[in-house]
Design a protein around this nucleic acid. Sequence first.
DNA 1: ACCTGCCGATTGACACGTCAATTCCATGGA
DNA 2: TCCATGGAATTGACGTGTCAATCGGCAGGT
Lengths: 163, 163
Amino acid sequence: MTSATPERRRGRQLPTADELRIWRDFIETTEALSSQVSTRLQADSALSPGDYVVLLALSEAQDRQMRSSALAAHIGWERSRLSHHLARMERRGLIRRQDCPTVPRGSEVLLTPAGADAFRNSTFPHLRAIRELFVDALTPDQLRAAGEIAAALRAHLGAWGED
Amino acid sequence: MTSATPERRRGRQLPTADELRIWRDFIETTEALSSQVSTRLQADSALSPGDYVVLLALSEAQDRQMRSSALAAHIGWERSRLSHHLARMERRGLIRRQDCPTVPRGSEVLLTPAGADAFRNSTFPHLRAIRELFVDALTPDQLRAAGEIAAALRAHLGAWGED
DNA sequence: ACCTGCCGATTGACACGTCAATTCCATGGA
DNA sequence: TCCATGGAATTGACGTGTCAATCGGCAGGT
């Protein structure tokens, strides 16, 4: 619209109407998808996606416990976000926190039996939902393409962050 | 893992490790992408993605105003979500609400001059961000594939909702 | 006239995320 | 000794989203 000339669009132009339509479809659909998966998880297991990520990391950790900052790094969350989330999970009895003996001001996060239970019971329905809502929706080619698209987007995002 | 037999995976099995890896990459990357676009929009225009969607709809509406429920339907939001969001936008002077003369209990949402300004100034940088972070990251084939993947996911989601 | 039900919209309670303080403690100068 | 500097984690304020409850007015039936 800014220019009628059909010049080869080299990075600096605005998106075309088609590109914009794809953007909107893509972003709205992925949002709907993750919201649907999250709704299923909630219904099946009374867990949020955040809960699941934390419980998964702790389940795989040595002794089912981990330093708070290591946990944050492992799952790629900001420390403050994790702190808030752990407070909510602790209120519900899924995890516990205790002072780390070796590191001053350090905090150990550990899985409670209730948390381990909740995670165990959630796994199967959650994976089933992923298959039903995501994997089964796509052809093998599309699934492969989805992986490549994610990789390309991530690489591009990373490159932008470092400029 | 549940069964070693390589039976053709027909909808009822859990995802394979590869499928699961693609799922995680895909969902995490799209989340990072929309968060990055939202950060840009905020930095460039002091608007959230929600603000943008509402302002876009109002800008295109007859007389730059719309019934609250029509607006909600148009952008696909729950009424309560829109109500909360409009309250925040009204506080900031981007929109105004007034009683609808024809419909009892109905509410007209209308764009203020400040809201129209904010939207106008946000458009260019926002579209540029979409191009830089999304369109430019993908090859034309990948872009096409992204559109098809979105369509397939959406169709599948819809089918699930109606069962 | 009264009650019941519905419809449009708002409200309240709560979960979640981000950003900017803030706390606590240890350590390394001066 | 005293201070400042820094790392680990928490806290507070606030925007955002969902769900359930509520409000206010207008039917329609009795």
